[in-house]
């Protein structure tokens, strides 16, 4: 049996399982912390830095998805500083590749777009990078547009941890990082891929998607919960 700890989030007292991360606990208690790369059911990355929070007594900020709760911890989820940092994170992601919402399959169903609205990222203070990655339409059911990828690695984690295949990974590093199938093969020729579709279901933006359907019809959220329920069956079974 794991221990229970008590902490406060924005002044509200909550109880949590020791070892759980702050973000998960906050969500369980209906306290909203914006987040992007986080996906319940798979391991946390701590990469996008949108879910940063403050902890009283520390001058630092913490990515709540990878910071475990502790007894007596006082978490602050909103402040001028946190809003400033979150805005930068979204702004930099928007500027990193040519995100053009008006022509994107995810328009209206995109977590990046939604967070930009919510955090008031109404313009970019840095120049945009207009990458020109080739659109991969070789798979019969799915498509991959690297120009829309935000490197959240949800697809990688879900393919590895839920589907158990690890057909997807990152190549290169830093600003040149790119999500790849097998040896940077075209999706349709990636032998490891089982075409399960989980990656496109969890993609928060329009980088991986089901061909021929706008995302609004795919009902992404339901698919995500479907994926996750499959996972729990697997763990139990």
């Amino acid at each position: 049996m794991s221990k229970t700890v008590e902490l406060t989030i924005d002044g509200k007292k909550v109880a949590a399982k020791e070892g759980d991360n702050i973000l998960k606990v906050a969500r369980e208690n209906n306290i909203y912390i914006p987040a992007l790369c986080y996906l319940e059911g798979v391991s946390s990355l701590g990469g996008c830095r949108v879910c940063v929070v403050e902890i009283r007594g520390s001058p630092k900020v913490f990515a709540s998805c990878v910071t475990p709760v502790a007894e007596g911890m006082e978490v602050i989820t909103d402040s001028e500083r946190l809003r400033r940092y979150r805005k930068w994170a979204i702004e930099l992601l928007l500027a990193e590749r040519p995100h053009v919402c008006s022509v994107c399959v995810a328009n209206g169903n995109c977590e990046l777009q939604q967070l930009a609205t919510e955090l008031g990222v109404d313009h970019l203070r840095v120049d945009r990078k207009w990458t020109n990655y080739e659109l991969d339409l070789t798979h019969e059911r799915f498509a991959y547009d690297p120009n829309r990828c935000i490197l959240c690695t949800r697809c990688i984690r879900v393919c590895d941890e839920v589907e158990g295949v690890h057909a997807i990974d990152l190549m290169l590093r830093g600003k040149n990082s790119k999500v790849i199938f097998d040896l940077d093969d075209k999706w349709g020729f990636a032998e490891s891929c089982t075409s399960c579709g989980k990656c496109s279901a969890v993609c928060p933006v329009g980088a991986l998607y089901v061909k021929g359907k706008p995302l609004s019809e795919v009902k992404k959220k339901e698919l995500v919960s479907f994926v996750m329920s499959r996972r729990s069956e697997k763990t139990i079974g």
Partner: peptide, 22 residues
């Protein structure tokens, strides 16, 4: 060569490629 190594070490090709390019 990378495919061969991935098969011998029983590692996913994407993992091998990711490491080799990192």
């Amino acid at each position: 060569l990378l495919t061969h190594i991935s098969k011998l070490l029983r590692l996913p090709p994407s993992h091998v490629y990711g490491v080799a390019t990192f």
